[in-house]
Design a protein around this nucleic acid. Structure first.
Lengths: 231, 231
DNA sequence: TTTATACTTCGATTATAGCCGAAGTATCTG
DNA sequence: CAGATACTTCGGCTATAATCGAAGTATAAA
């Protein structure tokens, strides 16, 4: 019949709100077990299990078995990108008040994405690191260069310790507000923690963060960032 | 509350097979009336009408009123690209007959995607432009080089006029059959139109196109393309 | 081996939404 | 104005699938 693959099959998989919640959780945090995904989608474990097998069968997720645990991940970067494309088309979350509006503005400038930086700030820092050739882009990950090793060392981030951790080291994470990549993984997390420690950023209510005055100076000096773009 | 737009809303719009058939028809032929779309989706006019209002409300389609006629179009290039992205993820369609096979062969060799070239031809032309350094790949877009400015000028494509248009100029669009990028945006559209004008390509039924004999010669001469790869 | 954990499968219920017939509105033709 | 065309709205039917309780399997710990 058709000469063209049926995109509505994939759309159906993404159309259910429980499955969407699970996919979204996995965009933020790679490798969650079914029980955790059930919680995040507000459904029972049985329901979640059914949804997850559909997503795996449709090649949107893949699953890694470790004994009795099964960790789910987004299958590949194309899946993340397709979700990102749909997010771009979706009407932006409703803004019901002035408070909502300023919050949505702030959250697009700087926020945390699970445990690393996202939004304009996350993307700008990532791009500054690429610009200075401290990290280089690969398919799904960033690679730390020789210059980068020195830089992170002087920035009091212990790369070897991070590499020991049983999680991704420097992953590319697609940003829904900027439509560009920011740095995730344990290195992304370490940068976030260090910026908090230095007092360069502070938490606002929710996931939004605020860059302090010392932060502005620091980011310009250490990362060579053009902080006026944060406006 | 929610800071992230809800992509499942858009996925739901694309998930229904009747709506998918309509969207697909509109990727082929821009500007069809409800009655025609009802036929192509094999549903009654009432049903089609309901689907179409949902698609318009969700900003996937826009509608132009001309008297008692209402012509529907894909709302913008992002919608087309999102559909292409989902198509990449979808399992390839089953081929049930010889006729299907030859059609699926043709459509993979050369077809239009929204308003520009896709398939093997689209990818080969794009890669030829990169090879000759007329355009350079960036993150999400292609950048026209100095040599490219001259080339397109001699090819009777007015880049400045294209840049005026309120749409993407030279976007990267992932190709579902080739799994590589082809050139989209207003420049991609201009190239398509110019190739039709020159008689280098001709429309086949549906979205497939055919390269003419003059086209073969022209593509080899102007783009330095190895047309034997077109199969 | 027993018990606990993590998850899957089955079955019944329920809600959503896709579908069309019938009746309505808007626009053009004569 | 009457009649035709193009489409929309309403109401009821129906099929799909999302949901969870209950019971089952697989692995790990004690």
């Amino acid at each position: 019949m058709g000469s063209r693959p049926d995109f509505s099959y994939v759309a159906k998989l993404m159309a259910d709100s429980s499955r969407a919640a699970m996919l979204e959780a996995l965009l933020d945090l790679d490798g969650l077990p079914a029980s955790e995904l059930a919680k995040r989608a507000n459904v029972s474990l049985q329901t979640a299990s059914g949804h997850l097998s559909k997503l795996v069968e449709g090649n949107l997720l893949r699953v890694e078995k470790h004994g009795r645990h099964r960790y789910f991940r987004i299958a590949n970067a194309e899946v993340a990108q397709a979700i990102e494309m749909l997010t771009v088309l979706a009407p932006s979350a409703q803004v019901n008040s002035l408070k909502d509006f300023s919050r949505s503005e702030k959250i697009q400038i700087a926020r945390t994405c699970y445990d690393h930086l996202a939004g304009k700030l996350g993307v700008l820092i990532t791009e500054a690191l690429v610009e200075k050739e401290y990290v280089a882009e690969d398919q799904d990950v960033f690679i730390v260069t020789k210059a980068g090793e020195e830089f992170f060392n002087s920035f009091k981030i212990d790369l070897d310790a991070l590499r020991q951790k049983r999680r991704h080291f420097a992953r590319k994470c697609l940003d829904w507000s900027e439509r560009r990549y920011h740095l995730a993984g344990s290195l992304g997390n370490a940068i976030l923690l260090q910026l908090f420690d230095l007092g360069w950023i502070e938490r606002l209510p929710g996931r939004a963060v605020k860059v302090t005055d010392t932060g502005i100076k620091g980011l310009e000096k250490s990362f060579g960032m053009d902080t006026s773009k944060l406006g």
